[in-house]
Design a protein around this nucleic acid. Sequence first.
DNA 1: TCAATAGTGTCTGTTAGACATTATGGA
DNA 2: TCCATAATGTCTAACAGACACTATTGA
Lengths: 224, 224
Amino acid sequence: MSDRRPRKPPYSIDVVLLTAVRGQLAVLLSRSPDGREKWTLPWDSAKNGEALDATASRISKSILGEDTAWKEQIGAFGDGKRHPSDAEISVAFAGLVPTGTPSPVGGVYAWFPLADVPALSPRQRQILDTAVSMIRTRMDQSPVAFRLLPQMFTLTELQQMYELLLAKRLHKASFRRALQGAWLVEPTDEWRSEGRGRPAQLYRFAPRKRRPAQRGIRLDLLSS
Amino acid sequence: MSDRRPRKPPYSIDVVLLTAVRGQLAVLLSRSPDGREKWTLPWDSAKNGEALDATASRISKSILGEDTAWKEQIGAFGDGKRHPSDAEISVAFAGLVPTGTPSPVGGVYAWFPLADVPALSPRQRQILDTAVSMIRTRMDQSPVAFRLLPQMFTLTELQQMYELLLAKRLHKASFRRALQGAWLVEPTDEWRSEGRGRPAQLYRFAPRKRRPAQRGIRLDLLSS
DNA sequence: TCAATAGTGTCTGTTAGACATTATGGA
DNA sequence: TCCATAATGTCTAACAGACACTATTGA
């Protein structure tokens, strides 16, 4: 019970920053200060009196230069699993970074496609898995896909983002019809030419509260 | 920084036990030990080394005699809001209690319909609101309605539970068709006569992993 | 017998998915 | 001109919601 050394913090705040890189989700990891090739999720212990999400914002800002436009708490993790902080519990947040955001320099931070994530402490591994699965299941409640795209995007880019997150192909005409019915995007007067074909119109995320009635009930999702 | 008094715990575990009472959701509250008519969500500080959900289970068991069949973490709450424990953060869990479960006796615990919940500490109020909204939005991912019903139930009871949670009327034939397509329940050979009309067949929750394909995408939910 | 509730068959408007076609740029 | 991609119109099978009807009990 020595009280001299920096007491082990009661809890840590961990941040799962996600972006899309070449058709894959990628997570930002931080290189461990000891020379070895070890990586961790960015984390910090909370400052006294600082709100939980304020700590997460502070961490994101210190890495990326600004806070993420979207952030959500993933939950509290403990259960005796190991964590670099030695804290008994960790409160985790997920944040989404638009594609095309300048990456942090200096070699301390790097994006890892989810398939290539190196070994993490057991607790951080659990945090990452929970964050990814939460992002994927909350897509229809939160504008996840839009926060992974720049402010302006083509409908093809948006559809590809949905396909990446849902891990399944979508039908183009149906996707656009659904988008139109949901009043989620509005066209800008800009167009972008991408190689060969006809240029695509750029859209921006502009949800309008409409269509309070949704049809049917979703019992089928339960069995999936 | 006095270290003599029982140190304020690093975090508390709070439990939101929900059930359905006469067509309304109700939450279980615990009477404050001081004589006044004050109520709180059940909570405890974590024992050293005890997993978060194990603490929640312990609390539920001490109140109801057994753990809830379903439980989910709501998240970590802090942000300087007041809490009876004085802990800096609270990790909250929601648990569902089937209707018809014997209520705890002794006057220490009582079920309050959500509309009649007395004043709580700001943090517990936030926990309760988050738990209820989470329950309602995760209905299609978790068997929420089934965990609020006894093991065996009639389809009318199940539909009424869905209507309670969704706060909207459902169409009987459509509801049953959707249920059949989802392979979520199986009939038993028992029937129950409820007053006047034809007796209803009893069903039990028995999800079978089928129908991996679900139709369409749900963009419309985003704008609601 | 009537009343009340359980359970099911049929019809119809809506829509997801498939397909085809037009539009518009670059090579 | 050909090719590639964007964008849109049309058709069809599937399904949600409405309605009507049958079934089975208690009063």
